[in-house]
Amino acid sequence: MSCVQCGGPSLYKCPTCRQPYCSVACCKQHKLTPCSLPPGPKNVEDRIETRLTYDFPTEDTVAPEKLLLLEQSAEIKQCLENPHVRKILELLDKSPHPDQLMQEYMLEPIFTEFVDACLKVVEPPEEVNSA
């Protein structure tokens, strides 16, 4: 891609409009003119397509359309209002060994409540296999 300001090879993208630029000087030049978000997909199917694709799906991979439902859950939003839950999620995201931390955090009732709310959305009770 070429820099939108000078046409040189770009290494960076504007966080707002995603236009490529090559340097601090070109970034500053770009910021002199207002930019906006690029047009996004209109329907849910297009949002799924552009937001999430799996390179190596497994049998435990959650379908993208179910992940989109997480955004709409009032129960999950309520759980995320708790700063402790958000801090736990941040630590899990940054951890090189999140599986070990998960065992620890699953002992905390507030985190277990969040996990249960997520599971209700992506794996509703009527879809759970009784094996």
Rank of each mutant, 00 (worst) to 15 (best):
Q78N: 10
Y54I: 03
Y12C: 01
C26I: 06
V128I: 15
T16E: 03
P20L: 06
E126F: 15
P34N: 08
K87Y: 08
S10M: 02
V85Y: 00
S23D: 00
I88D: 03
Q103E: 14
N129P: 10
E65D: 15
I88T: 03
T61M: 10
C79T: 01
V4S: 08
L89R: 04
D93T: 12
N82E: 08
E45L: 00
T112H: 12
L92D: 05
G8E: 04
H97A: 08
V4N: 05
R86V: 12
C79N: 03
L11F: 09
A63H: 15
K31A: 12
T50V: 10
Q72C: 13
T33F: 09
P15V: 08
C3K: 02
E104S: 09
T16P: 02
K87T: 11
E123N: 15
Q29A: 15
C22N: 02
T53Q: 12
L92A: 00
T58S: 10
S130I: 14
I76D: 06
S95R: 06
P34V: 09
P96M: 07
I88N: 04
V115Y: 10
K13S: 06
K13I: 01
Y105F: 13
Q5F: 09
D93N: 13
P15S: 09
F111V: 06
D116Y: 14
A74I: 11
F111R: 00
D116Q: 15
P98K: 03
K77D: 11
K31F: 07
D46G: 13
Q72A: 14
A74Q: 13
K94I: 00
C6K: 01
Q100S: 13
L91R: 03
Q78V: 05
K31N: 11
A25S: 09
R51Q: 03
V44G: 03
H30T: 06
G8Y: 06
K31S: 10
H97W: 07
L89Y: 02
D55R: 13
Q78W: 01
C35Q: 05
K42V: 14
